[in-house]
């Protein structure tokens, strides 16, 4: 799971606005800072987008994050509670850059979309959401989409 989310899969985060409405946005990197067995993940988001979500800096608020392999559409959704909002570290930025390289390369290979078109989408101001993962789901399109995968991240 750690390898899957650390690859160049497409990342979408879902949460709630302060009004309680669902809100989807793109994430720009995800890593397991404590290793593969950990239930804590750091998700890189655009700061302006995060402002739209009802998550508190000190923790609280539910988030879902779905990663989809660009080549196969194999998808996994993780759900959990926000632990904290933090500034991006050097490690986060390194993972973010690697994520963009892998993700954009896969999209370019599959769709022929030139990288500069995708670079435009990357927010200039980034922030990290630390999420405590509780559940995982197979979200691959098909009849088994939504099937629970395991109690926690493996």
């Amino acid at each position: 799971m750690c390898a899957f989310f650390s690859s160049g899969c497409s990342l979408i985060v879902g949460g709630l606005t302060p009004e309680g409405e669902p809100f989807a946005t793109r994430a720009w990197g995800l890593r397991f800072p404590d290793g593969a067995g950990s239930d804590r993940v750091r998700i890189v988001l655009g700061a302006a987008e995060l402002d739209r979500l009802a998550v508190a800096a000190g923790g609280g608020g539910e988030l879902a994050a779905t990663g989809a392999n660009v080549l196969s559409l194999h998808s996994v959704q993780l759900k959990g509670e926000v632990d904290s909002i933090e500034a991006v570290t050097e490690e986060d930025l390194e993972q973010h850059r690697r994520f963009c390289d892998l993700f954009f390369a896969d999209v370019e290979r599959i769709d022929g979309t030139e990288r500069w078109l995708m670079d435009r989408l990357v927010p200039e101001d980034l922030v990290v959401v630390v999420l405590r993962v509780r559940r995982l789901f197979d979200q691959t399109p098909g009849p088994r989409a939504g099937r629970p995968l395991a109690a926690g991240p493996a």
């Binding site: 879902g14 709630l16 989807a24 559409l73 399109p141």
Partner: peptide, 20 residues
């Protein structure tokens, strides 16, 4: 494709899935 949809449960848990 894939378009993405985010919804929420009554308990406030968001969910994301792909649309054909």
């Amino acid at each position: 494709i894939p378009a993405v949809i985010c919804t929420r449960s009554a308990a406030g848990e968001p969910n994301i899935t792909y649309l054909s």
